[in-house]
Design a protein around this nucleic acid. Sequence first.
DNA 1: GTGGTCTAGACCACC
DNA 2: GTGGTCTAGACCACA
Lengths: 122, 122, 122, 122
Amino acid sequence: MTWELKTDRPIYTQLVDQIKLRIISGIYAPGEKIPSVRDLAFEASVNPNTMQRALSELERDGLVFSQRTSGRFITEDEKMINEIKDSLAKEQILEFFEKMEKLGYNKKDTLTLMENTLKEMA
Amino acid sequence: MTWELKTDRPIYTQLVDQIKLRIISGIYAPGEKIPSVRDLAFEASVNPNTMQRALSELERDGLVFSQRTSGRFITEDEKMINEIKDSLAKEQILEFFEKMEKLGYNKKDTLTLMENTLKEMA
Amino acid sequence: MTWELKTDRPIYTQLVDQIKLRIISGIYAPGEKIPSVRDLAFEASVNPNTMQRALSELERDGLVFSQRTSGRFITEDEKMINEIKDSLAKEQILEFFEKMEKLGYNKKDTLTLMENTLKEMA
Amino acid sequence: MTWELKTDRPIYTQLVDQIKLRIISGIYAPGEKIPSVRDLAFEASVNPNTMQRALSELERDGLVFSQRTSGRFITEDEKMINEIKDSLAKEQILEFFEKMEKLGYNKKDTLTLMENTLKEMA
DNA sequence: GTGGTCTAGACCACC
DNA sequence: GTGGTCTAGACCACA
């Protein structure tokens, strides 16, 4: 997994999203230690301050916590991780419904079209 | 409706997509004349050549046709417009399925989650 | 019928060919008077001298003859016209054979391919 | 083999045709790498953009494919090459029939005339 | 070095 | 005025 950054919205929010994705998908497992700010910043080719801000955001949400001397860790609260996962999913769903409405499909149309698509693929 | 251009893929493909959207949504109706290359280019703040390329692409697909001296027109073949609409929709759906799979939902999970979301909203 | 002039060979030879075509196809009938050099030159957007040269060429071949006071006329010798027709046709044929050989068809292949094409069209 | 460009139709279409000829005649063999855009453009004394356009056209037809960093290659699908060959041949034939009709020979006359020409040459 | 994209500005044919 | 072509020169990502 790599870092993909676009220019259409603040970089730190994109970092937040991508780290969330890594947590949800288990790339960063619950309780695991994550790389240092400096390493992450280097990896993503962003300024350490920007990465710092992203991590603070995640800390505020409770997804990661820092231990002064030994570094940052992913929360062990798997329930919280699942909640984040669901909320991200809902975001995606709403965004998707919007796009489909631009194309002239209302939510119900969208669902039936997806069911058909699924059958075709099988 | 305005022109939104990002930097993560060729401008001319984005122009193609956005014009397709305008055709599908009826902003540009079948048989209707569309603005000149130069006007569209100015409107979207791109070089006329780039807009020209986008329009050529649409012409190759049969969505617009040009009459050398009098301008460009949307096809009157509404069936073709609907086909484009469907194919764009399918693209969106597949893209969406992929994103959801990154979040850990397979296609079936995604569908049931969407149905629940729909119920909640009602 | 209009005058089509390219830049890849002398204009006067092109004029000769096109006037020959007009004679063969009957646009200029045997014995008929043709327009004045000046008019023809104007029509074809070439210098009168160039048109003059073309007509001299045709005169040398005996396809047109001039009567000092009353203008230029197409020969009445239909046999000669037919000979010209045949020679032009042969030129075309040889040129065509050459092109087909560039594509990898020898003369015999070319003929059979043409016969097939003819059948398909019927 | 050199590049012959006339002024009576777009350069890029002529480039397309001539490259097709090179492919068909085996000058560019299936699977072989062809010179870079810049080199071809220099060779043909055209702007790199123009050559690029010609090559894109060929790529769309599937006759060549490009590998972004290592260059462009002729397709290995010899069947497709043969199809192109046949379609070019048919074009030539139709064009030739038209010219002969201008001379007053219908398609059947043309064929018999060609057969006679062939016998004479033998 | 490769292919690819984009801009700027020019010219053409057509009506 | 319209669409279309061409050149010149720049920049990018990739490896």
